[in-house]
Design a protein around this nucleic acid. Sequence first.
DNA 1: ATGCTTTTTGTATTTACTGTCAGAAGAAGT
DNA 2: ACTTCTTCTGACAGTAAATACAAAAAGCAT
Lengths: 211, 211
Amino acid sequence: MDTPLTETPVRGRKGRPRKFEREKALRKALEVFWEMGYEPASVSRLCEAMGVNPPSLYATFGNKSSLFLEALRFYEKTYWQSPANKLMSEPDIRRAIAAYFDEAAEIILSPDNPCGCMVVTAAVNISDSETEIIRRVREIREDTRKMFAERLRAAIKVGQLPPGTDAPALAGAFNALLEGLSLQAKSGLFQSELKAMAACAVRMLPESPRG
Amino acid sequence: MDTPLTETPVRGRKGRPRKFEREKALRKALEVFWEMGYEPASVSRLCEAMGVNPPSLYATFGNKSSLFLEALRFYEKTYWQSPANKLMSEPDIRRAIAAYFDEAAEIILSPDNPCGCMVVTAAVNISDSETEIIRRVREIREDTRKMFAERLRAAIKVGQLPPGTDAPALAGAFNALLEGLSLQAKSGLFQSELKAMAACAVRMLPESPRG
DNA sequence: ATGCTTTTTGTATTTACTGTCAGAAGAAGT
DNA sequence: ACTTCTTCTGACAGTAAATACAAAAAGCAT
C-alpha cells in the first residue's frame, strides 16, 4: 500500500489543514460498512459518521468502493489476524478449532463492534458491477477455507486425525459454520448462546485414532 | 390467503384479458428475488423477467414488498416443506439430520434453481424500513431453529441422544451450518462438494448412549 | 507584513436510477 | 353502445454516487 494506515495531521505542510484524522474517519467508515454492508451504506451516511463532507471523502479515499476496500483491509488485520495465527500455532487440533471458534464468537458478537462479520455481510447482495469488491471478498473467504484445510492436513499428518479424514469437505463445513454463526450474531442473541453454538464446531472433527 | 396460488386466465370474464399467467409471473419473480435478494432486484428487472409492465405488476401483486412476500410463501411451500416433514417423521435422528442436510444441499445448489437460499439472501442487507419482510424472514429462520430443537428433544426422549445434550445450542449450530452452506452454494462449487460439507452435520450429534 | 501557492472546506448541483402511479387506449363480455 | 378490466406510455418524487466552484486557511518567498 502507498498510504500508511496511521497518520496524524501533518503540521508542517502547506495548504489548509485537515479537520479530521484519516484513521479515525476510516474507523468510523468501517463501523458503518460493518453494520450495514456495502451498498446500503450511503455516502451521505458515511460522511455523517465520519464527520466529513463528500468532497473531502472523495479527495481522501478516492471513492466509495476504494474506501470500502481500505476499511476491509483494516478490518481483517485488526480483528482476524490474531485468531488465525492461534489456529495455526496451537499444536492440538481440537484446542485449535475450539479456540478459533470461541474467539470468532467474541469478534462477531462483541458490545464494542457491530454484530456479525463484515466479509459475510458484504458477500451477500453485492451488485455485479462492483467487480473489485466481489473479487476481494471471494478471496478472503477462500483464504479462510484454505486455512482450515491446511490446519486439518497438518493434524492428519501428526496423527491427531484419522488418515481417511476428508479435509477439504471438513474445511468447507467449518467455513460454512463460521459464516452461518456470523448471520446468527445479527439476530439479537447473547454471546453465551453464540459461544455454545460455536462450541459444537469441534464435534465435527472425527475421533482421533488413539482415543 | 385470499388469492389462490394457481389460477389459469379466466376466459368467461369481462374486460381485457391478461397477457400473462399469474403463477408463472410469480415464479419468475421468485427466481429474480432468489438470485438477487430483495433490494437489488429492481422493479424494472422484475418486470423484464415476468414479461409485464409496472402497472400490471402493481395491479396484480400490490407492490414490490407484497410481491416478495408472496414469492417467499411460494418458495417455502414448494421447496422446504418436504425436507422439513421428513426431518420430523424419520425415526432415527442421525438419518433424519443426514437426509435433511442432503436434501437442503440439493435445493440450494440445483441446476434448476438459483444458488443459495432465498431466506438467507433476503435476511442480509435488508433496509430497516421493510419491517414486514424483516419480521417474516426472522420468523422463518426462527421456525427452522425451533424445528431442529424440537427434533433433538424428541431424540433425547427416546434415548437416541444422551440426556445431557444441549438441544438449543445444537439446534442453533445446525441452523448456522445450514445458512452457512447456503452462502457457500453461491461460490461456484459442485453439488458433490456441497453435499460432502453438508454430510459433516451429523457428526455434531453427540454419540448415543447405547453405541 | 504582503502577495502567491497549495490544500481543504462547504454549498449546491449534476446525472442516473429507484418505486410508484395517473391517464389514455385497447380488448373482451353484455 | 356501454361497462369492465388490462394494457402501455410517460411522468413523478425521492435518493444514490460523484463533482464544480469558490471561499478559507495554512506555508513560503519577497
